[in-house]
Computed example of a mutant assay.
Amino acid sequence: MTAGRGEGYWRRLVRRFTSDDEQLDADELSRRAEESGCRKASECCSGERAAVLGRLRSVALHPSTATPTLEAELFDGTEGVTLIWLGRRRIPGIEPGRHLRAWGRISERDGHKVLYNPYYELQTSG
Protein backbone atom coordinates (compact mmCIF):
# COMPACT_ATOMS: atom_id res chain seq x y z
CA MET A 1 0.00 0.00 0.00
CA THR A 2 1.37 3.40 -0.95
CA ALA A 3 1.53 6.32 1.47
CA GLY A 4 -1.08 8.27 -0.53
CA ARG A 5 -3.61 5.45 -0.51
CA GLY A 6 -3.05 4.80 3.21
CA GLU A 7 -3.48 8.47 4.03
CA GLY A 8 -6.75 8.57 2.09
CA TYR A 9 -8.01 5.51 3.91
CA TRP A 10 -7.24 6.99 7.34
CA ARG A 11 -8.75 10.33 6.38
CA ARG A 12 -11.96 8.61 5.27
CA LEU A 13 -12.02 6.47 8.43
CA VAL A 14 -11.61 9.50 10.72
CA ARG A 15 -14.27 11.39 8.77
CA ARG A 16 -16.69 8.47 9.10
CA PHE A 17 -16.34 8.54 12.90
CA THR A 18 -16.44 12.32 13.30
CA SER A 19 -19.15 13.33 10.80
CA ASP A 20 -22.86 13.32 11.50
CA ASP A 21 -25.21 10.95 9.67
CA GLU A 22 -26.63 13.69 7.45
CA GLN A 23 -23.17 14.67 6.16
CA LEU A 24 -22.21 11.02 5.58
CA ASP A 25 -25.45 10.51 3.63
CA ALA A 26 -24.77 13.61 1.52
CA ASP A 27 -21.23 12.39 0.82
CA GLU A 28 -22.55 8.96 -0.25
CA LEU A 29 -25.18 10.52 -2.55
CA SER A 30 -22.54 12.79 -4.11
CA ARG A 31 -20.12 9.87 -4.62
CA ARG A 32 -22.84 7.73 -6.20
CA ALA A 33 -23.86 10.53 -8.58
CA GLU A 34 -20.27 11.12 -9.63
CA GLU A 35 -19.64 7.40 -10.23
CA SER A 36 -22.75 7.19 -12.43
CA GLY A 37 -21.40 9.86 -14.78
CA CYS A 38 -24.03 12.41 -13.77
CA ARG A 39 -23.20 16.03 -12.99
CA LYS A 40 -23.25 17.41 -9.47
CA ALA A 41 -26.27 19.68 -9.10
CA SER A 42 -24.03 22.36 -7.59
CA GLU A 43 -22.03 22.47 -10.86
CA CYS A 44 -25.03 22.73 -13.22
CA CYS A 45 -25.85 26.10 -14.77
CA SER A 46 -29.08 27.46 -16.15
CA GLY A 47 -29.55 26.78 -19.86
CA GLU A 48 -27.35 23.68 -20.10
CA ARG A 49 -28.43 20.10 -20.55
CA ALA A 50 -27.55 17.93 -17.59
CA ALA A 51 -28.23 14.58 -15.95
CA VAL A 52 -28.43 14.43 -12.15
CA LEU A 53 -28.77 11.48 -9.80
CA GLY A 54 -30.05 11.60 -6.24
CA ARG A 55 -32.83 10.92 -3.76
CA LEU A 56 -36.25 12.56 -3.74
CA ARG A 57 -36.62 14.57 -0.53
CA SER A 58 -40.19 15.68 -1.09
CA VAL A 59 -43.02 15.32 -3.59
CA ALA A 60 -45.99 17.70 -3.74
CA LEU A 61 -49.01 18.27 -5.96
CA HIS A 62 -49.74 21.91 -6.75
CA PRO A 63 -53.26 21.97 -8.14
CA SER A 64 -54.38 25.06 -9.96
CA THR A 65 -57.32 26.06 -12.07
CA ALA A 66 -55.20 26.10 -15.22
CA THR A 67 -52.64 23.29 -14.96
CA PRO A 68 -51.75 21.08 -12.02
CA THR A 69 -48.06 20.39 -11.43
CA LEU A 70 -46.26 17.60 -9.63
CA GLU A 71 -43.07 18.90 -8.01
CA ALA A 72 -40.28 16.86 -6.41
CA GLU A 73 -37.02 17.94 -4.82
CA LEU A 74 -34.07 15.79 -5.90
CA PHE A 75 -30.99 16.01 -3.64
CA ASP A 76 -27.64 14.69 -4.88
CA GLY A 77 -25.53 15.46 -1.82
CA THR A 78 -24.42 18.87 -3.06
CA GLU A 79 -27.61 20.77 -3.87
CA GLY A 80 -31.28 20.26 -4.60
CA VAL A 81 -32.93 20.40 -8.02
CA THR A 82 -36.69 20.82 -8.31
CA LEU A 83 -38.28 18.44 -10.83
CA ILE A 84 -41.57 19.79 -12.22
CA TRP A 85 -44.00 17.78 -14.32
CA LEU A 86 -46.65 20.05 -15.85
CA GLY A 87 -50.18 18.68 -16.11
CA ARG A 88 -49.47 15.68 -13.87
CA ARG A 89 -51.17 14.85 -10.59
CA ARG A 90 -49.29 11.64 -9.86
CA ILE A 91 -46.51 9.54 -11.38
CA PRO A 92 -46.06 5.96 -10.18
CA GLY A 93 -42.72 5.55 -8.40
CA ILE A 94 -42.20 9.28 -7.79
CA GLU A 95 -42.27 9.33 -4.00
CA PRO A 96 -40.08 10.65 -1.18
CA GLY A 97 -37.00 8.54 -0.50
CA ARG A 98 -36.85 7.12 -4.02
CA HIS A 99 -33.55 7.34 -5.93
CA LEU A 100 -33.70 8.44 -9.53
CA ARG A 101 -31.71 9.82 -12.42
CA ALA A 102 -33.24 12.83 -14.18
CA TRP A 103 -32.08 14.75 -17.20
CA GLY A 104 -33.09 17.71 -19.29
CA ARG A 105 -32.30 21.42 -19.59
CA ILE A 106 -31.57 23.20 -16.30
CA SER A 107 -33.64 26.32 -15.62
CA GLU A 108 -33.94 28.64 -12.65
CA ARG A 109 -37.05 29.63 -10.73
CA ASP A 110 -36.79 31.97 -7.76
CA GLY A 111 -33.04 31.34 -7.57
CA HIS A 112 -33.36 27.53 -7.45
CA LYS A 113 -32.41 25.00 -10.12
CA VAL A 114 -35.34 23.38 -11.91
CA LEU A 115 -35.90 20.68 -14.53
CA TYR A 116 -39.26 21.01 -16.28
CA ASN A 117 -40.83 17.76 -17.53
CA PRO A 118 -37.55 15.88 -17.06
CA TYR A 119 -36.80 12.49 -18.47
CA TYR A 120 -36.12 10.12 -15.61
CA GLU A 121 -35.15 6.58 -14.59
CA LEU A 122 -36.07 5.10 -11.23
CA GLN A 123 -33.03 3.61 -9.48
CA THR A 124 -32.54 0.95 -6.85
CA SER A 125 -31.48 2.44 -3.54
CA GLY A 126 -28.62 -0.01 -2.92
Rank of each mutant, 00 (worst) to 15 (best):
D21S: 07
W10V: 14
N117K: 11
V81R: 02
I84H: 01
I84L: 08
Y119M: 00
R11L: 13
R11K: 14
R32W: 07
F17D: 07
M1Q: 04
L29W: 08
R15E: 14
R16M: 12
D25Y: 02
E7H: 10
R12T: 01
Y9N: 11
V52T: 00
L74M: 14
S125Y: 05
R15F: 15
A102F: 04
E35W: 11
S58M: 00
R98C: 12
S58K: 00
W85A: 05
E71M: 09
A60R: 13
E71D: 12
Y9F: 14
Y120W: 03
G87V: 08
R57A: 07
G37T: 12
H99N: 06
P68G: 11
E108M: 10
Q123A: 07
E71Q: 10
G6T: 15
E35Q: 15
T82K: 00
Y9W: 14
A41F: 01
Y9H: 14
A72K: 07
S125I: 04
E43H: 09
W103A: 01
S125V: 07
N117G: 12
T124H: 05
R12M: 09
C44V: 05
E95D: 09
A60D: 13
T67V: 08
R16L: 12
R55K: 13
H62R: 08
E22V: 15
A102M: 05
D27K: 01
V81E: 03
V81W: 00
K113I: 02
D20F: 04
S30H: 13
E28K: 10
G93P: 15
D110Y: 01
V81I: 13
G77H: 04
D27R: 00
T124A: 02
S19T: 06
L86Q: 15
R89F: 00
A60Y: 07
A60N: 14
R90D: 03
E95W: 03
E43A: 12
C45M: 10
R49A: 03
Q23N: 08
S58N: 03
G8A: 12
T124N: 05
T2D: 08
Y9I: 15
A66H: 10
G97N: 13
Y120Q: 00
P118D: 03
S30C: 13
A66Y: 11
H112V: 05
Q123E: 14
R15N: 15
L74S: 09
C45I: 07
L53N: 09
Y120C: 04
S46F: 02
R55T: 14
A41G: 07
E28L: 13
N117C: 11
R15G: 15
G8Q: 09
E48A: 14
G4C: 10
T67Q: 10
R101Q: 08
R98V: 15
G80D: 06
G111L: 00
R57W: 00
R89P: 01
V114I: 09
R12D: 10
R39K: 13
A66W: 11
G104A: 02
T82C: 01
E79Y: 03
R109Y: 08
S58V: 11
A66D: 15
T69H: 00
L86D: 10
L83W: 04
D27G: 02
R11C: 15
L74D: 07
L61E: 10
T82Q: 00
A102D: 05
L13A: 12
T124E: 08
G77F: 01
P63H: 04
L83K: 02
S46W: 02
C38D: 08
L122V: 11
W10L: 15
S19E: 03
Q23C: 06
R39M: 12
E79W: 01
N117V: 13
R109W: 07
R101W: 04
R88L: 09
